[in-house]
């Protein structure tokens, strides 16, 4: 399956470091879109600021590269105007949950139909390795030189509690699963969150003695397990992969349109 037709070759080479997980996410996203057969004109990719957010520039859709943390708010304006479009919002963990945390929970609460892909590398990659809300206790970052005392979020739990109607998690090691999840998320009518553990060898792996990209990806294999697996019961430290939430809830644009339709009928009478 060629995803080349979705690429803006003019804008290459990309800015990512060798071994960065973000390229794998790009690939999976394009495979999902290709499999779904959606026309390029019906896809809008909105992103914020960060290494991850650069994804929007490389793809031949309607692309909006916005402000750090605010992608979901811009995307809400696009989606409310043209609910027929497929809106995909790739975000870094800092972008989505530190500076953009408020927009994240409110987009989830509204259950507005868009797909948020959180590329969780547990670090601020673009600015050179400061800790993010996903870095985790005891890790090192340039701004946590004596080890981090901030605890991290569980993105899946947070999304569920905020009202997202599709929530899934996987890693860049599990590319097939990632592609399937992005597909499902795009098809899902409501706010969908796909969290992808995506390695940043440059600014997270190196500093935390996790080795290079290969070692980090291997750790995604050994440190994660399918949701509800026996392995998880035996080793609670394992990170679960899979679909956490998939529920039917009223979608925001449809709800708004229902009001408009009702008013139209009211005035016709």
């Amino acid at each position: 399956m060629s995803v080349k037709k979705f690429i803006r070759e003019r804008f290459f080479p990309h800015i990512w470091c060798q071994g960065c997980g973000h390229g794998i996410v790009l690939n999976a996203m394009l495979r999902a879109l290709s499999a779904l057969g959606i026309s390029k004109n019906e896809i809008v990719v909105v992103s914020g600021i960060g290494c991850s957010a650069r994804i929007s520039g490389y793809v031949d859709f309607h692309t909006l590269h916005t402000l750090h943390g605010r992608a979901l708010a811009f995307a809400t304006g696009v989606k409310m105007s043209l609910p027929g479009l497929n809106v995909i919002v790739p975000m870094g963990d800092g972008d989505a949950l530190a500076i953009g945390g408020n927009h994240f929970i409110h987009a989830a609460r509204r259950n507005i139909d868009m797909t948020a892909i959180v590329m969780n590398n547990r670090i601020y990659g673009m600015t050179g390795g400061q800790f993010s809300p996903l870095t985790g206790y005891g890790m090192k970052a340039t701004t946590a030189p004596y080890k981090n005392i901030d605890h991290d979020f569980d993105i899946a739990e947070l999304s569920r509690a905020a009202g997202a109607s599709y929530v899934a998690r996987t890693t860049t090691y599990h590319v097939q699963q990632l592609t399937e999840m992005i597909k499902e998320a795009i098809l899902h009518d409501g706010f969908s969150v796909v969290e992808v553990l995506s390695q940043c060898p440059t600014n997270f792996g190196r500093r935390n003695k996790m080795g290079g990209a290969v070692e980090m990806m291997e750790s995604y294999k050994s440190l994660t397990t399918p949701i509800g697996s026996k392995a998880k019961q035996e080793n609670p430290a394992l990170i679960e992969r899979g679909v956490f939430v998939q529920r039917e809830l009223p979608e925001y644009c449809s709800e708004y349109n229902a009001i408009i339709e009702k008013l139209k009928k009211g005035t016709e009478k």
Binding site: V46, R70, A73, T76, V78, S81, L82, N102, H103
Partner: peptide
């Protein structure tokens, strides 16, 4: 919207359509 930051971002997105 949830705040004024989101408000101006949303209108920019909507203007583009």
């Amino acid at each position: 919207m949830e705040d004024e930051i989101a408000s101006i971002c949303a209108i920019i997105g909507a203007s583009l359509t």
